[in-house]
Design a protein around this nucleic acid. Structure first.
Lengths: 110, 110
DNA sequence: TTAATTCATCGTAATATTACGATGAATTAC
DNA sequence: GTAATTCATCGTAATATTACGATGAATTAA
């Protein structure tokens, strides 16, 4: 128990949920916002931005990396992060198609 | 520890993350998809759909209710669920504005 | 070489999530 | 009234998430 029963659901539902989970933390939202807007993107910048411990920030970066949304390359003593534009587009499509559904019913039943 | 430090982040980032968390499970994605498309929406229907225990389904419905995305009214022996169209629009705007940001940079730095 | 910086990773603790069975309240059907 | 149904809630267990400090590897600066 404690683990999602992935096999019960469609691939699409799992994909949407996985993307949602990847961004389901305000620190990770902030990180992505910054990567969308600025060039500077070494880990230390995020630590300053966020006010969280360096190890915690590293953990959030790892979560985004595991989801494929960002990638990091070692650059001297620091590590530079940036978005993976392809995955970002996948996320946009996956979540976008889901949330842009309109309510199909004339009336709510309750 | 173990709890998100909400105060460190903007209201907007927290709002986006909260909506993302609300839909960060394939069962809840499936529930919302059904509520967007069909009239029948009593708890038992979801239990059949999902293949999860009734108590687990109730828990997922509660999570969506706490986020304000759905509402339920007792209807005889069963409970009828439907979307809250206003919250659904809020979610659409909140997540939509976030994910529809385009990458602002000419080149990725890594 | 030595010292300082940067960051990933480990260990740990607190809390949250996911899931199930059992129970009981409320309603309907008999 | 009695039995069956529907479902919310409780208790419990397994796992995941969030967060921190400590450590150490890698690189740069001295």
């Amino acid at each position: 128990m404690g683990t999602t029963k992935t096999r019960l659901f469609t691939e699409e539902a799992n994909a949407i949920a996985n993307f949602a989970r990847a961004i389901a933390h305000p620190a990770r939202i902030t990180i992505i916002n910054r990567l969308l807007q600025t060039e500077t993107c070494v880990c230390g910048d995020f630590v300053e931005d966020l006010g969280l411990a360096q190890s915690t920030v590293s953990q959030h970066l790892l979560a985004l990396k595991k989801a494929g949304i960002i990638q990091g390359t070692v650059q001297g003593p620091s590590t530079c992060y940036c978005l993976n534009p392809e995955k970002w587009n996948e996320l946009k499509n996956s979540l976008g198609n889901f949330i842009h559904q309109e309510v199909a019913l004339k009336s709510m039943c309750c």
